[in-house]
């Protein structure tokens, strides 16, 4: 197990370093001169140079990167160039909104993905099979933003069942908060759940063909037990890994979903920061999203190793 983890660590580290590098380079890639932005549009050349020196922007890029990464690791996320507030503070003010959405969507995704997947993998004949397959294909092909807009049109506009714009924190008012959360969370979760379900379904029908399922049958094991202990048990690894990958997609999808449902979360913060070239904020949000995605993926690999003795014991 430990050797397995040790073997995976380099690629996790590589991913984190590359992300940090990209995040660090974003302002420079953006073409805008950060010194110019800080100094203001009316600053003289000398003033801009002074700011540049003050910010350390005249030193070699690698040194700057080291400094920057050092600051990030110690928890200093810098200051917004536009509002002059610490980035950490800006993010903290938006975090709970996005977290509510992401957690709700992740839970929905896991429940629906596993449920639909097991259902699709177990029903093997007739009309219900076709119905499940069809539903999955449609959900799978429709990304969160389109799903969200369709939900708005049907549930929000036609039927006027749920609010489609704005938010209330579930901590302030759980019931109203949930009504605001339902549509965006579903929009985010449905396509990912369909993806998980499809992969579980494929894996289950693959496992069903294995000899050990025949052997279980030859042992006299009842069908339900075969389905659970043999078929499902051998499909769980796939489920865990795809779920791990999908969490990152939920975070990214939140950017668009927040815009559509007019929620004040990190996504809208990111968008407005990009539009106003507030790179300090963008950097941290990108880093934040990727770090969460990478960590969740790594956790799912650990869980996979725990589930599969071939990975756990062989290194």
């Amino acid at each position: 197990m430990l050797t397995f983890l040790a073997r995976r660590l380099p690629s996790v580290a590589l991913m984190l370093v590359v992300t940090a590098l990209i995040a660090f380079l974003l302002p420079r890639l953006g073409g805008g001169d950060p010194a110019q932005v800080v100094a203001g549009p009316d600053a003289t050349l000398a003033q801009v140079e002074a700011v540049r020196e003050q910010l350390g922007l005249d030193r070699p890029v690698l040194v700057q990167f080291g400094d920057w990464a050092g600051r990030i690791v110690t928890g200093d996320f810098g200051t917004s160039l536009i509002s002059n507030r610490p980035v950490a503070q800006l993010i903290a003010s938006r975090l709970s909104s996005t977290m509510e959405l992401a957690i709700a969507a992740t839970l929905l995704m896991i429940v629906m993905g596993l449920g639909l997947g097991i259902l699709a993998g177990s029903v093997r004949k007739g009309g219900s099979r076709a119905a499940i397959d069809g539903t999955l294909s449609v959900l799978l092909a429709t990304p969160p933003h389109v799903t969200g807009l369709i939900l708005i049109l049907i549930l929000g506009i036609s039927w006027r069942l749920l609010p489609i714009s704005g938010e209330v924190s579930v901590f302030d008012d759980p019931v109203t908060g949930l009504t605001y959360l339902i549509l965006p969370a579903f929009a985010l979760a449905l396509p990912q759940a369909a993806m998980i379900a499809r992969l579980i379904q494929a894996r289950m029908s693959q496992v069903r063909e294995e000899d050990f399922v025949d052997l279980a049958k030859a042992k006299g094991v009842p069908p339900r037990r075969i389905a659970i202990s043999h078929v499902l048990r051998n499909s769980l690894g796939t489920a865990v890994i795809v779920t791990g990958v999908r969490v990152g997609e939920i975070l990214a999808g939140a950017v668009v979903i927040e815009a559509i449902f007019a929620r004040q979360g990190l996504g809208t913060l990111a968008v407005s920061a990009i539009q106003s070239r507030d790179y300090e904020v963008v950097q941290i949000i990108v880093l934040f999203a990727v770090v969460i995605a990478v960590v969740v993926h790594f956790l799912s690999e650990i869980l996979l190793a725990a589930l599969d003795p071939r990975i756990r014991l062989d290194s």
């Binding site: 294995e210 000899d211 050990f212 025949d214 049958k217 030859a218 006299g220 009842p222 051998n234």
Partner: peptide, 24 residues
Amino acid sequence: LRQMRGRDLAMVFQDPQAALNPVK
């Protein structure tokens, strides 16, 4: 028949690698 399998008649398979559940 299910109750008879394994008790009154049993089977040995061709490929022992595939015939055992890898995670148990």
